[in-house]
Design a protein around this nucleic acid. Structure first.
Lengths: 198, 198
DNA sequence: TCCTTTTTCGACCTTCGGTCGATTTTATGA
DNA sequence: TCATAAAATCGACCGAAGGTCGAAAAAGGA
């Protein structure tokens, strides 16, 4: 590994941490180079712009989550659980990885939006695969799978990303998921218990 | 009407036009005061900050659209048409959406997001009322109306705001709307023809 | 007219992303 | 080993943008 590659990775990791804890807009390039102990020019030797760096940071995050999602999709658990599992991989609720809190501050809209878009492109196909699997097994029945998956992801993001959702929200989400995928009523009901536990 | 009120309204209208045509981020305070022919200090005599002004501009937009939505909701057209009508009234920026619409959504995230949030709070209740009306008439059948309406608005926004949607998108949207509201299949099918016309 | 309130002005400040030519460090090959 | 090229680093400087502030002009009474 060349010196340049190490430096770039170091900067990406510093930025990742700062973006997640303080937010993208609230983190200045100055903040990053200060912690890294380098000059402005060095920063711009590795990144075209601050926003381009954001893109790379998000790429790192997405990669991780996509890998987790693929793992779940490829496992042997029941299909409905896979659906939920892939969903859950989108929201890393890890201790330090508390992306949620900072991410949903009103000021972090830009970053949040970019993540959503990329997540749609990477998690979408994975989820579609699971749905197809479910159709093959006869527990789902629907056409236009990519479109339906997109709706699920959109709704799920809007609902659960905020962190605040009621019993009724979950009930309707379950109902919609079943109807959207053409599953028998009750197929996804286990979600309620899952959420109740944490 | 005092002089100050007139000036503030003037500034709001200039800002509204610029925010809609060029985008919020691409419109500087300098741009606004230049067109108004006033000094920086005068601007900040009327507004705390640029973002606070955005809030007021959005307030104006929302008020207009909410009024249009109420008009439709209170009219005598069939319920399903009311649903679609209220949806259509959500179109921000009014008419010119050829170049703007697409370009905006890309880099005007902040404004777009604030509008969405406010729209949810104002159009949501109106739509819920229409759905209740539909239930009373027996063409809809569902519980948790606010939650279902929210999902409709979220999906509708995600789908139609972009301007780019396929035949399959519309088909799934129709299917989901009917199932979400508990309507007979075909109840909302007319949407397809509506979109086909323009 | 004198005093108060409202409105206006614009020079100046700070922050921030970004540029650029110079300089140092590291690799290469004769 | 030394000259030369390539990679990496530096930091002063720039321009745009949002925002501040004290003073002055205009408007409104009494």
């Amino acid at each position: 590994m060349k010196k340049g590659e190490r430096r770039k990775l170091e900067l990406l990791q510093i930025a990742y941490r700062k973006f997640v804890t303080a937010g993208y807009e609230n983190t200045s390039v100055e903040d990053i180079i200060e912690e890294a102990g380098i000059a402005k020019g060095t920063y711009y030797y590795y990144f075209e712009s601050k926003e381009q760096m954001l893109e790379e940071v998000i790429g790192m995050m997405i990669e991780q989550e996509a890998e987790a999602a693929r793992q779940i999709a490829g496992s042997l658990i029941p299909i409905p659980q896979k659906i939920v599992g892939v969903f859950a991989s989108m929201r890393p609720s890890g201790e330090e990885n508390s992306i949620q809190g900072a991410l949903h501050k009103a000021e972090n809209i830009l970053m949040h939006n970019k993540i959503r878009k990329r997540l749609m492109d990477t998690i979408g196909p994975i989820l579609s695969g699971v749905v197809e699997e479910g159709i093959a097994e006869g527990i789902f029945s629907c056409d236009n799978i990519p479109q339906r998956v997109r709706m699920l992801l959109t709704i799920g993001g809007d609902l659960f990303d905020e962190g605040q959702f009621t019993e009724a929200d979950v009930a309707v989400f379950i109902d919609m998921t079943e109807k959207l995928l053409g599953a028998k009523p009750g197929t996804m009901a286990f979600i309620r218990d899952l959420i109740g536990q944490g």
